[in-house]
Structure formats: structure tokens, C-alpha cells
Nucleic acid binder design. Structure first.
Lengths: 346, 346
DNA sequence: TCCAGTTGAGTTACCCGTAACGTTACGCTA
DNA sequence: TAGCGTAACGTTACGGGTAACTCAACTGGA
């Protein structure tokens, strides 16, 4: 095996230059193709580059130019949630086509993890930062403000972003879902979610949801916020808890589709008929939902597009183009078949 | 908004030092906490650091020390496939706890994209590379060999890796599935998958699968390799195609669970009884499978653990600890209920 | 009082590119 | 053949840190 403790004789531009019998500068010009050299020289240099296996040192280049790198730091709470994986995919693909690299940070939904990650990634002189969520620690906010680089806050639409923001209005999304369920005739509504720092988009949705339900004449009888991850099994046992304590709930709104599927499984396992005995509504519209026999009532958000939009704003800002500060990516209610549909909306 | 064209007056170590009335070196020593200064000096320097909002420039530090950075490049084919998202999560979490940063590269399953990504990321002097798949372009392989940094190839177990390898033996995994299905009494087997460059792990699985089926007395009547992504809908229409041309197939093995769910949906939609009329077997054991009414017959691979293991090997190698070259992470057959079970294995 | 030993802090030489000039060589015109 | 313009290439000065070395001040013991 290699011995990594030895400093591996990396080939530098100087070595290429001296091998080709030209100056460092000439070699540099050839490599960057900015002209100022003869075709003969170009060939000679490129030949040596191939021969020696020279790889440019971008680190030195950035350092020399006193510029920012082509890195873009991207913080994402978790990848277990398919939704965030899609956002990240959208971001990285778009950034990649513009010659930028994603430096990933999984912040586990906590502002502390985000803060330490931010200070680390800033020390690498990134070109910009894309952050999920709008809740940052005070020190993080200050660092971001002082960083002097473009910053896109995604996910939760932020009317007063640090710099830019893309996402949806979670209050409105929650409101629409609440209104829809009330329109479908439900009156005793339940909620099952989890409590996380950055998951406050979910909290905002819940607020909108409650508002709509109340103004529609229903009531949110019980809200359950588990201290667990927002995945299938917590959805399962959360439903068990909720229904165990309140028997008259006729529909449950979940933090996301994964939890809703867990809840659906619990209900059908108990012999409850969905949606006749109990309605189930999720959030996020997982891709798998479209090939399951029972279409989950949910809220569709174009996650891939969201990621792409964030990357586009970043790139536009970096290239000096005018960019709006806030971009609403929109959402769409999926009526599905896990709630009764009395409205003819489907 | 900020004006990013202006060079933002980044605070440098020199500025901190002069503000504190000490030399650059002393300030550097304080920042790195390597001793050689009085408590009074330390306080003074740190006070100025806070005051000026100084953020270290790791780029310059790496450059000065002629060392590698704390970056680890991680190439992943796509994130739409939940499985890879889990692998990435495992990698990044583990790397993060050891002070490393993930530089992501989505290679779209092609060796060309991987090659360009490799050369880009190598120019940032990463500490190491974690690559998905073992198929690299010749130039990529050469770059990797010459890079002189630890390299972990994951996913497909590689007996002669460039440096290190973690994953499973896909031939064996395919073989086990084939043997199981034959044991369950199936004789006319079909396969639905996609064709991609790096997805050759799937090809290897298929080879093992065919081997087992044939030596077990069955036959793989039809193999379908779609030119599409390995997701739900291709699973759906691939199944339609497969069953349209061959009516006597009694079980279908899919490239992954997502496609298998698509297939399951097609079959139940056509009124076919699964598993009595036709068996369905997937691969990967998606998390959602455990909360759906019908458990998908599949192969469980500990994806998160795979990612963690890759990161662990990387870190061990970086810190000079002895590391094995190849690590088998194992897999486990999930009998499920989408194939007939005549063997009592469940 | 002197000197060795210890500790704190300053100096200098890079690291690898790039930018901004400076220089050379050559061809063209007058 | 002087004069000039320009393409081609060389030189030099950074940039923000680190490592290794040097120097200065203070300590304590003989």
C-alpha cells in the first residue's frame, strides 16, 4: 500500500515549466488558455503536463488570486428524509453544471451543529452558502452577515432573509390542508409530528393548519410532538398514542408522508377503515405514493426544483446578475384517497 | 444587499496580531493552542479575535503546511435512490465527527462524469476520496493511483481495489436471491432493471441470480434492461412489457425495491394476485417496506453502516492506523410476502 | 554577580499559483 | 536603418498562514 505519511511528490507548475523549458508564467498561461503563447509552446507544455501527470492546485490558485473558491457550502438537516435528498440533488446538479462543488453539512436539525459547521466551512473561503431553514444561532447569523458571500436560505420562505430565500410559505400550506380537511367534513382533527429545532417549518405548518381548522368550525383536538425522528415507525406508534387517548378524532394530519404511512399502517392493522373510520393526511408527497394502491392525501412540493432554484439564485448572484431576494416555489394539494372527499375537488 | 464584487475586507491573522500588539507568529500559536505564549497574551489575542470577528483561513493553512486538506471527496451516483442517500448520510456523519468535510459529487452513473469530477476534486488537495462503484475510466484510475491519498471504493466489493473497498458481493447476493426463489418453487423467472455504466453492481447481481436459477433447475426466461432511471414508474411499465411478451413468467426479480413497487402496483392493478399468480422480489429493502401491508421480498443491505464503515476506513488510514483493504458489510434476505414461501425459511 | 536554563516572542523562508509589469525579439513601415 | 508596435515570454511581488530558527528577557542557583 501507499505510504501516506510521506509527502507525495506532487507535481507543481514550476516542475512542468522547467521540464518544458519555459517559465512558470508561460506554463500558467497555457494551462488557463488565456493566450500570450505560441502554438509550439502550448504543445510542449501540454505534453509535459500529460507526461508528469500534473494536476492543478486550485487551492493555491484561490489563495493567489485572493478570491473565493468554487465551493458552495450546503447544509441539510438529514438525508434519511427523502425530501431533503431531493433538494440536495437539485442543488448539486445545478451547481455542478456551473463548475461549483458542494460541501455538504448534515446539521441534524440543530442550530448548534449548524453553527459549528458554518464556521468550519467559512474557513474554506466558499463562494456561497445554501442553508436549510431560517433558524440560526446568533453567532451563526453574525458570521453569515459578515461573511460577505451570497447566502440562500431555503425551505421555509423567509420574508427577511439574511441575503436570499427560496421555499414555500409553510403557514399557507398548513392552512390549505386544514381548510381542505374541514371542507371534507372532518371536525375533530389530530396532529402527529416531532419536535426539532430547525423543523420549525413543521411548527409553522401546524399553526396555519390550526388557524384554518378553527376558522372553519372544526377543532384540533390533540397535537402530538414526539421526541423522535420524523419517520415511519414514530408515525406508527404516535398514531397509537393519539388514538389511545382521544377516541373521537376523525382525521390525522402528519408532519410528513413517512409518518403518515406509519399511521396508515397502524390504522389498517387495527382494522380501521381509511378514510371512512379515520382520515390520514401527510405532507411532502413522497414519490412512492404514486404507485401505492391507496393514494396518500398530501401536499406536493417540487423539491428538486426547489434545490435547483436555490442553486440558480446562488449562481446568478455570483455572476453579478440581478436576483430577487425571495422566491416562492409553490405547493399543490394532493386530494388522494386517504381522506373522504366530499368537495368534488379531486 | 451586499456588494460581492468588492473584495470584502476579510480579517487576516496579521491584522489580529497587530491589533493585539504581538507578532503574526504569536497570534498563530495562540489560535492553534500549541503553547509558547503567556496567559496574558492568549487573552489579548482571543479578545481581538472576537472583536474583529476573525475567521481562520484554512485554505492558507493547508497551503502553507503543504498538507492535504480536511476535505474528503465523496462520489455518489444519485440521491433519488434512497439507498445512496443513506450511504451518504452514513459517510458524512462519521466524517463530520472526525473533523472532515464532505465534498459531494453526483456522477449520474457515468464514468465520464466521474472522471471530470475526480480531476476537479483532486485539484482541491482532498485528504481522501470515497467513490461509489468500481468502474472508473482509465484516466480516472491513473489519477487515483497517482493521487497518493487514501481511496475507498464502496458499494461493489472489490477484491483488487485501488486502495480500499467496502461493500457486498453482489454476485453472491444475486445468487442467494435466485436460489431462494427457485427453492420457493418458481421456475420461469424474469428480471427488470435498467442499464447504466456504474450500475454494473446490478449486472453482477443478475449474473449471480442467473447462475443460481440455472443450477437450481429454473430458467431466467426474460431479462429486461430499460434505458431509464431505476425508479417506480419504469418498474411499472417494465413489468407491463415483460408480462406482455412472456405470459408464463411466475416471478420477477427487480433491480431494486423502487422498481419492484412499481411492478407490484402494475400486477395488482391488472388483478393479478401477488404472490399466487406472480411473485415479486426487490433489492435493497427500502425503509418504507416495513410499514406497508405487504412486506416486499427483498435483500437487506445495511446502507448506513456501509457508509460509516467507508468513513471509518478512511479515517483509520489517514491517522496511520492499520486497515484491512477489503471489508464485506454483508446482506440479509428478507423473505417477505410478495413471493410464495414453501421453504419454511421465514 | 555571573551564567545556564527556560520561556516568550520576533524573523525569515517558504508553499504554489496569479497579476502586473518588464523585457526581448521580431516584423513592419517609412 | 531607425522607429515603432506587438506578440511572446520572463520577473517579481504578493497572499495568509506555518515551521524552524533566532533573539531577548527573566529565572534561579552557585
Amino acid at each position: 500500500m501507499h505510504d501516506f505519511t510521506n509527502k507525495n511528490k506532487k507535481i507543481s507548475l514550476t516542475q512542468v515549466a522547467s521540464a518544458a523549458g519555459v517559465s512558470k508564467m508561460t506554463a500558467s498561461r497555457v494551462l488557463r488558455g488565456e493566450g500570450g503563447y505560441s502554438e509550439k509552446t502550448r504543445k510542449l507544455v501540454m505534453e509535459k503536463v500529460d507526461q508528469l501527470g500534473y494536476l492543478p492546485n486550485r487551492l493555491a490558485a484561490v489563495f493567489a488570486g485572493d478570491k473565493t473558491s468554487t465551493f458552495v457550502g450546503v447544509s441539510i438537516p438529514e438525508l434519511g428524509n427523502e425530501v431533503f435528498a431531493q433538494v440536495l440533488e437539485g442543488i448539486d446538479r445545478k451547481l455542478g453544471t456551473f463548475g461549483h462543488q458542494t460541501v455538504l453539512g448534515l446539521t441534524q436539525h440543530t442550530a448548534e451543529e449548524e453553527e459549528t459547521w458554518i464556521s468550519t466551512v467559512l474557513s474554506w473561503q466558499p463562494a456561497g452558502l445554501i442553508l436549510t431553514g431560517r433558524l440560526h444561532s446568533p453567532r451563526a447569523t453574525e458570521m453569515l452577515r459578515n461573511a460577505g458571500i451570497p447566502i440562500v436560505e431555503i425551505w421555509d420562505l423567509n420574508s427577511s432573509p439574511i441575503d436570499m430565500s427560496v421555499g414555500i410559505n409553510h403557514f399557507d400550506a398548513g392552512f390549505d390542508m386544514g381548510r381542505y380537511l374541514v371542507q371534507c367534513g372532518y371536525r375533530n382533527l389530530g396532529y402527529v409530528g416531532t419536535s426539532h429545532d430547525i423543523a420549525n417549518a413543521a411548527t409553522t405548518r401546524l399553526a396555519g393548519f390550526c388557524k384554518a381548522v378553527e376558522s372553519g368550525g372544526g377543532q384540533v383536538t390533540k397535537q402530538l410532538c414526539l421526541h423522535d425522528s420524523a419517520t415511519y415507525y414514530p408515525g406508527f406508534y404516535g398514531t397509537e398514542q393519539l388514538l389511545g387517548s382521544s377516541t373521537d378524532i376523525d382525521v390525522i394530519f402528519y408532519q410528513n408522508d413517512a409518518m403518515a404511512f406509519g399511521g396508515l399502517q397502524f390504522c389498517t392493522g387495527k382494522g380501521l377503515n381509511v378514510p371512512d373510520d379515520i382520515g390520514i393526511a401527510g405532507w411532502g408527497d413522497l414519490p412512492i405514493a404514486s404507485v401505492l394502491p391507496k393514494r396518500m392525501t398530501s401536499m406536493h412540493v417540487p423539491h428538486l426544483k426547489l434545490g435547483q432554484a436555490a442553486a440558480e439564485m446562488m449562481i446568478a448572484r455570483l455572476s453579478g446578475e440581478p436576483v430577487g431576494d425571495v422566491r416562492d416555489i409553490g405547493f399543490k394539494l394532493i386530494p388522494g384517497s386517504t381522506v373522504r372527499n366530499l368537495t368534488g375537488l379531486a
